Simulated assay, not measured.
Amino acid sequence: MRSEALSPSVFKSKAGLKIGYGVLYAVLTIVAALQLLPLVWLFLFSLKNNQEVFNLPPLSLPTHFRWENYEKVWSAGNISVYFLNSVWITVAASALTIILGSLTTFAMTRMKWKGSSLALGLFMVAMMIPVHSTLIPLFSIFNKVGLTDNPLSLILSYVAFNMPITIMIMLGFYYALPREVEEAAVMDGCSVNRLFFQIVLPMTSSVIATTGIINMIYNWNEFIFVNTFISSDSHKTLTVGVQNFIGQYTTDWGSIGATLMISILPILVMFLFLSNRIVEGIAAGSVKG
């Protein structure tokens, strides 16, 4: 067989495609470097003393790497207690939100009952309620039932405010689940509880990972509720504990930087390892049918 020569237009299109990809990768590399600059600045900031913070350029290396800033905030600054509080409160609130959100979404998408549309509408309306407008009513309620200065007040608040966005993300994924699997399980005598926990819940692992990461990021970085409801040091989290290094006359900026670096690392590591699951869950939940 006689081979046909490729036309010049084909070579031009391939060359143009390679140039386009090259420009795209260059732009993405520059954007990624710009995104990393604040982290680099904060890391260098955490290894300086007050004089170096104000006298040296922002991205300059310290004259001496002061790793003792991390040791000081972890032991003397009580950051270890705040860190553990942030971990268990974040995990507890996120797990409770995911379980309740999954149950609610399953009931709205797989069961026929009066008021399901109204319930869904109420959850969506709740997304428009500003957090600041609820501080005084919530504080009054928690004060009456004895939950002020109690981690349970934080967990309940986080669950209430994260439920709408959790349900909204899960809705699209649940609508896309094939009903044939559930119908076959029901025909085999599967109860509703077994249907949800043994069949539906494992099928939604990707969207659970997505909502879990979103909930953890919000709960870990939350400040307003902790600052309003918690007063004792034994229940404070990292976001509020950083204020310990801000004095009336002096401020230890290096220790503040070390505290912020410690607070960023867990979320950063979790996001790096589970970022693919976030994209997978959002993409799967964005298509119905």
Results as ranks from 00 to 15, higher is better:
Lys114Arg: 15
Ser116Gly: 06
Leu118Cys: 04
Leu118Ser: 08
Leu118Val: 10
Ile129Arg: 00
Val131Cys: 07
Val131Ala: 13
His132Met: 13
Ile136Val: 12
Pro137Trp: 00
Leu138Gln: 08
Ser140Cys: 11
Thr148Ala: 06
Thr148Lys: 06
Asn150Gln: 01
Leu154Ala: 03
Ile155Asp: 05
Ile155Phe: 10
Phe161Cys: 02
Pro164Gln: 05
Ile165Lys: 08
Thr166Ala: 05
Thr166Met: 00
Ile167Val: 05
Met168Gly: 08
Ile169Asp: 05
Leu171Met: 13
Phe173Gln: 00
Phe173Asp: 03
Tyr175Asp: 14
Ala176Gly: 07
Arg179Asp: 14
Val181Arg: 12
Val181Ser: 15
Ala184Pro: 05
Ala185Trp: 00
Asp188Pro: 06
Cys190Gly: 06
Arg194Met: 13
Leu195Phe: 02
Phe197His: 11
Gln198Ile: 11
Ile199His: 04
Ile199Cys: 03
Leu201Trp: 10
Pro202Glu: 01
Pro202Asn: 01
Ser205Met: 11
Thr211Ile: 08
Asn215Leu: 01
Met216Ile: 06
Ile217Ala: 00
Tyr218Ala: 15
Phe223Ala: 07
Ile224Leu: 15
Ser231Asp: 13
Asp233Thr: 14
Ser234Met: 12
Leu238Asp: 00
Val240Lys: 04
Val242Gln: 03
Gln243Tyr: 15
Gln243Met: 15
Asn244Gln: 11
